[in-house]
């Protein structure tokens, strides 16, 4: 991966993004990567993995240097892989929506009965929170049937076709469904946790450049090009995340996993 020339190491770093980003943002991450390479003056390759399993395999193989991680994976990256936290999108939290078909008889989550069929993607954080939101109905892994599909539009489809009684959505993905689809669904519970967000992390090869990377990200809104890139990503600014902020988020996540 690294080539040595005249004693100077020219390394190419890998940036990756949690596979739960909305498909329409794919090009935004390429634009961000181009911008980041210029801002930091170093070569970075953007690798977008199609699913959580393949991304996790790359992480285990130490291929990833910069990652826009979801809060669930952040736990493993920080605690097991020694990643350090840099920034998160200002004012943007990860929330989960548990939805039913618009015509469903369930008005509150407690109306759901076993065996309940659950449609969801492979997003581990959303699925964890989704299952917790079902707990008041005494539903858990032993009395639900899980239907895993590839995308949030397919979760919606499963509900509309009656293949599942409830579906789990990342709230942002629910909001991005077409209004035609959204009108055929009804949110039963909308999480308001506020403490979970995606976070940009650096692996050990870049950990010592943490301050520099943080600074270029925080400065983005100050220049026109940076503003354009942020607009593509769908948020107005990055916000600094201390290691303790991330440790706190991981502790919360751990209480939910336990």
């Amino acid at each position: 991966m690294s080539a040595s020339m005249n004693g100077v190491t020219s390394e190419k770093y890998q940036l990756t993004v949690s596979p739960d980003f909305p498909a329409k943002r794919m090009s935004s991450w390429f634009i961000f990567n181009t911008w980041l390479q210029k801002a930091l003056g170093m070569p970075i390759h953007l690798e977008l993995y199609p699913d959580f399993d393949s991304q996790r395999a790359a992480i285990s193989a130490d291929k990833v240097d910069i990652i826009y991680a979801n809060p669930y994976d952040a736990a493993m990256l920080v605690r097991e892989k020694g990643f350090v936290s840099v920034a998160r999108p200002a004012g943007k939290c990860d929330e989960c929506i548990v939805a039913v078909a618009a015509g469903s008889g369930a008005q509150v989550v407690e109306d759901l009965k076993p065996i309940c069929r659950v449609a969801r993607t492979d997003d581990p954080g959303v699925n964890l929170v989704g299952m917790i939101l079902l707990e008041p109905a005494s539903l858990g892994h032993d009395n639900t049937q899980i239907l895993t599909v590839e995308s949030y539009p397919l979760v919606a489809k499963a509900l509309m076709r009656g293949e599942a009684e409830v579906g789990f959505f990342l709230a942002e993905a629910f909001d991005e469904l077409s209004s035609l689809v959204r009108h055929q669904l009804r949110p039963l519970v909308h999480s308001q946790i506020s403490d979970f967000s995606h976070v940009l992390l650096l692996g050990s090869r870049l950990a010592e450049r943490r301050e520099e990377v943080t600074r270029v990200l925080l400065d983005m809104p100050a220049e026109a090009k940076g503003q354009d890139v942020l607009a593509e990503l769908g948020f107005a600014a990055w916000e600094r995340v201390t290691q303790e902020d991330t440790e706190f988020m991981i502790d919360l996540m751990d209480t939910l996993k336990a």
Binding site: E135, P136, S138, E244, F248, L252, T255
Partner: peptide, 18 residues
Amino acid sequence: RAGKVQGYTSVRRKPARL
């Protein structure tokens, strides 16, 4: 934190009535 217990965190969620 750094191998030492610094404090405790509690997270509560909505319980099933049963």
